[in-house]
Design a protein around this nucleic acid. Structure first.
Length: 128
DNA sequence: TTTCTCACA
DNA sequence: TGTGAGGA
């Protein structure tokens, strides 16, 4: 699943293509970059190159704008998103707490119990 | 031709 | 946010 992520983050689209894909003006696209809502890369000629992820981000921004959210508000949304990401990363570094261990063990038991005839038929019916 | 930066009769 | 200038 990493190959796909790499492709989506490959900056290969010039601003003209992005304009058509997002229906945004070049002015707007550049302005959003100034507001650090998107961070396109630059090629050897100082031209902005966008990735598919950037396209998604721009479309998302457009949606927020339609919902009446201003630049400041959108910035806050992404700040929140980054803050939560940082939290997840930090959580991955920590050793498991007792509560985590208990939760994992419980899930293990549930999984084993899930092999009973009753749940097998349930799974079967659910999938078809 | 397309995109860049800068600035505002 | 639009638009035009002047350059690459």
């Amino acid at each position: 699943m990493k190959e796909k992520e790499l492709r989506r983050s490959q900056a290969v689209l010039p601003i003209g293509t992005v304009m058509k894909l997002t229906k945004l003006s070049a002015r707007q696209i550049r302005y959003y970059e100034e507001q650090e809502l998107v961070k396109p890369q630059r090629n050897e000629g100082n031209r902005r190159m966008y990735s598919l992820n950037d396209i998604d981000r721009l479309l998302e921004i457009k949606d927020y704008l339609d919902e009446g959210i201003n630049m400041a508000g959108i910035k806050h949304i992404y700040e929140e998103k980054e803050r939560k990401q940082a939290e997840k990363q930090a959580q991955l570094q920590k050793p498991l707490t007792d509560a985590d261990v208990r939760r994992i063990l419980r899930d293990e038991f549930m999984s084993i119990g899930g092999l009973s005839k009753q749940s097998l038929s349930f799974k079967h019916n659910r999938n078809f």
